[in-house]
Design a protein around this nucleic acid. Sequence first.
DNA 1: GTGGTCTAGACCACC
DNA 2: GTGGTCTAGACCACT
Lengths: 118, 118, 118, 118
Amino acid sequence: MAWQFDSSIPIFKQIIDNITFRIIKGSYKCGEKIDSVRDLAIEAGVNPNTMQRALSEIESIGLIETKRGDGRYITDDAEKISTLRYKYIEDSAIDFINRMKDLEFTTSEIMEIIKNNL
Amino acid sequence: MAWQFDSSIPIFKQIIDNITFRIIKGSYKCGEKIDSVRDLAIEAGVNPNTMQRALSEIESIGLIETKRGDGRYITDDAEKISTLRYKYIEDSAIDFINRMKDLEFTTSEIMEIIKNNL
Amino acid sequence: MAWQFDSSIPIFKQIIDNITFRIIKGSYKCGEKIDSVRDLAIEAGVNPNTMQRALSEIESIGLIETKRGDGRYITDDAEKISTLRYKYIEDSAIDFINRMKDLEFTTSEIMEIIKNNL
Amino acid sequence: MAWQFDSSIPIFKQIIDNITFRIIKGSYKCGEKIDSVRDLAIEAGVNPNTMQRALSEIESIGLIETKRGDGRYITDDAEKISTLRYKYIEDSAIDFINRMKDLEFTTSEIMEIIKNNL
DNA sequence: GTGGTCTAGACCACC
DNA sequence: GTGGTCTAGACCACT
């Protein structure tokens, strides 16, 4: 079944986020081969060009490597994935905290807000 | 000095977010008169049409009211502002928590992450 | 008249090099507005999509800035252009020198080779 | 250890350049026998088909000769190698000089640039 | 009118 | 078979 997309955000960006997240999460392992552009495009329900653009951008970050005539592979640089994972977590936390601090919540109140929504 | 905009997001949306956030935060008080479209546009460094569009959308949410021949005022419905404020906080928290849970962090680990970045 | 392209290198890469070189050279001034994607595409004799891709990549380097609904501008960060210009010169020199050193020419012989071809 | 390849350039071309350069440089002597396709492929870490194609192209230039049932040999035509070596040097120099002249450097400045990077 | 996105479909190079 | 490139053409959002 086709993936779900938010029509207010470019599809290729959502694909980038989706796949990047899978790598960070570990659903795709280090060095693992990923499906072909065409197959992924069918799976996502988008045009192969759109999928290709997304994968190219992920490659430019270094999370994916292309072997021409063969296919694409998740980078085997576990360090890089780990770094991005850490960055993702930290960025998410800092973003949330900044929003709360802008609203002038104290640190203890911020902890409280998290607890209430867990 | 002109406001800072992220060129990948429509300017009018960033203006909407900016002004809405100010209202939620309380920088603009209930019932307070706001600057004219012209002045706000100059302050933000954007075309008056863009500012106009942003204010119209905020008005359609009910956070702003227009008095013809006079100007625009922040709604005096404190309840509405309060509700939005609450929603903003909760959405931010839930979004953050969901990201962490997707990465399979436990609730106690999530609390830990927040603490480390406070 | 359409630009000349080497069929063994992707057109979009040649466009990137071409425009980047013009900026480094100073044919395009700091902060100057550049022609629209469509006009440039016609001038180069390529599909607008191809030109767009090239410009997007140049933008990702930071040499160009896009103002939506308006047009594209050369960055007004003269420092950045200057740095790239310097890097371009140095890279070219080092690349040439390394080739000669790989062939075991001495430094004086390298100078000689340059003189003979000036 | 496998050779290093730039994934944006066809591997067989990089192999051609690599081996051609070795011949020009003199690492492979005139008339010397070269390793088998199989061994070279293992050394480079590529598919034997790829190595085969590269060698065939080098042979078509005349730098290599195949003796059926025996193996491949570097041409014993020293003149041909010498000519290519000279062409390689001159092309590199002219390419560099043209780049600098496009940036409107004078001949003395070009000499200066080389000196600074020697 | 400007740039941005997406689709459809073709063709090529590579392994 | 794989990925890469290019074209053509449509549609949308923004200023």
